[in-house]
């Protein structure tokens, strides 16, 4: 692979893996949501995310040029070769954790894709354009729930605050730019992570306030590592489940 392709390949894996693992987590709710309408909405979100995954991982496979498909990348890589944000592999917890995670990550995706819409890479810009509409809905849906839960009952307020507190450890990881990010930004393919962070703060703060919640102190311990494929322990279990069939029957296609 050419050096620039290699960086773009990695960049695509970060985006695709994040969609894939978040989609997987959201789909775990299927049939168990608190309200039937929420079951439908969450399946819808998961479906959008898997659709986005397909586009971007297939593209990553093309860039790599070794004949790997999006499916190969999703189902035949081990945890250390996954580059999804640490936030998305965190367990669903209760509905508050799931909605808070969705809101924090969907807001990030929304801002990222808004920038990638102008990417000099045609596939990336088309992907961003298509995904933006879907992600805008995810932001609205989860943001509405964050507000309802934060400003609902005493119990829901506590659960929403505790969701925010526990997920906050994984916020810096989202913006932990490395050389790949720099290179992609310089080439006009990727986004400027520094300004993304500022935009993200500006986006979520009013919503968190509206939800009567408090953003945790800045000097909290922050868990990082997704850019180099260093994960929490949860990812291994997700992959064990997700990849079971293609791993158990390596010669089969489905």
């Amino acid at each position: 692979m050419k050096e620039s392709n290699e960086a773009l390949f990695r960049y695509c894996l970060r985006i695709g893996d994040t969609s894939l693992i978040l989609g997987h987590r959201v789909s775990e709710w299927c049939g168990h949501a608190p309200i039937l309408e929420e079951d439908i909405a969450m399946a819808n979100i998961a479906l959008d995310l898997i659709g986005q995954t397909k586009i971007i991982l297939n593209y990553a496979g093309e860039l790599e040029g070794e004949g790997r498909t999006g499916d190969d990348l999703a189902y035949r890589r081990d945890a250390r070769d996954f580059y999804n944000l640490l936030m998305v592999e965190q367990p669903n917890g209760d509905f508050a954790v799931t909605m808070m995670r969705q809101y924090l990550v969907s807001s990030y995706m929304f801002l990222l894709y808004s920038k990638l819409r102008n990417s000099t890479d045609k596939t990336i810009s088309a992907f961003a354009e298509k995904s933006l509409k879907e992600v805008a809905y995810h932001v609205r849906y989860s943001g509405d729930w964050v507000v309802r839960l934060g400003d609902g009952t005493e119990e829901s307020h506590q659960k929403a605050q505790s969701a925010l507190d526990q997920l906050w450890f994984f916020v810096d990881d989202m913006f932990d730019a490395d050389e790949t990010d720099m290179l992609m930004f310089e080439k006009g393919i990727g986004a400027d992570i520094k300004s993304l962070r500022i935009d993200w703060n500006n986006m979520i703060e009013p919503k968190i306030k509206e939800a009567k919640l408090v953003i945790p102190e800045a000097n909290n311990f922050m868990r990082m590592g997704s850019r180099s494929g260093n994960h929490t322990e949860h990812l291994g279990y997700i992959l064990a489940e997700m990849q079971f069939l293609p791993r158990a029957y390596p010669d089969a296609t489905w």
């Binding site: 894939l20 997987h24 789909s27 775990e28 299927c30 479906l47 898997i50 659709g51 995954t53 397909k54 991982l57 999006g70 499916d71 999703a74 189902y75 489940e241 997700m242 079971f244 069939l245 293609p246 089969a252 489905w254």
Partner: peptide, 11 residues
Amino acid sequence: ITRAPSLDRKA
């Protein structure tokens, strides 16, 4: 759903 063997089958 979480064990569907390809991205298409999952979707």
